[in-house]
């Protein structure tokens, strides 16, 4: 029956000879979502969580299984955006490190956050835009480490607030 319908539609109608070319079709969605947030006190980082042989440091790990998903094959742009608000009287050295399944480092974001004071925190916004090679490297990651340290113990006052969002651009084309 479908052939009868197609036949009738074809013989009873006409079309011009324009090319039905959709090879140029592209969708470029850009998604933005929260990644993490944290807040810690000066006393916490002074004590450290004793997970590394570095004094005055905090670290934590996040497993990132989603980087290996198929949709990330179409990832063409990636930007991490950070907001740090520091009222601890020591520079806070932030390292956001990615590792692959063999525990090899694939990508690192490093940023010192200026020292601040209670009632007068230093606020710092920064972002990191990855190039195509770095995107290829980071999408092989399965774990991220957030490592924060300070050079020496601070006074036990103040706190650090850290927020991170990511903007990920994809390209889906008909080619």
């Amino acid at each position: 029956m479908k052939y009868a319908v197609l036949f009738c539609l074809i013989i009873l109608s006409c079309t011009d000879d324009r090319p039905l070319n959709y090879e140029d079709l592209e969708a470029r969605p850009v998604f933005e979502f929260n990644v993490f947030q944290t807040r810690y006190s000066a006393s916490l980082i002074n004590a450290g969580n004793q997970s590394v042989p570095v004094p005055n440091s905090l670290r934590d790990f996040v497993d990132l299984d989603f980087f290996n998903e198929d949709f990330n094959e179409n990832l063409v742009s990636l930007e991490f955006k950070f907001l740090a608000e520091n009222s601890i009287d020591r520079i806070q050295q932030l390292d956001f490190i990615f590792y692959d399944a063999n525990a090899r480092e694939t990508f690192r974001i490093s940023e010192p956050i200026a020292a601040g004071a209670e009632g007068n925190p230093s606020t710092q916004e920064f972002s990191v835009v990855l190039n195509p090679l770095e995107i290829a490297q980071i999408t092989s990651s399965v774990r991220a480490e957030l490592l924060i340290n300070q050079a020496s113990s601070a006074t036990n006052s103040g706190e650090m607030r850290l927020e991170c969002i990511v903007e990920a651009g994809y390209l889906f084309s008909a080619e």
């Binding site: 979502f33 929260n34 990644v35 993490f36 947030q37 944290t38 810690y40 916490l44 969580n49 004793q50 997970s51 905090l58 670290r59 934590d60 996040v62 957030l146 850290l162 927020e163 991170c164 969002i165």
Partner: peptide, 14 residues
């Protein structure tokens, strides 16, 4: 409501 992961810095030594 999604506010991002809340990093907790667990005390690994303990």
């Amino acid at each position: 409501e999604y506010e991002g992961l809340e990093i907790q810095f667990p005390d690994f030594a303990q």
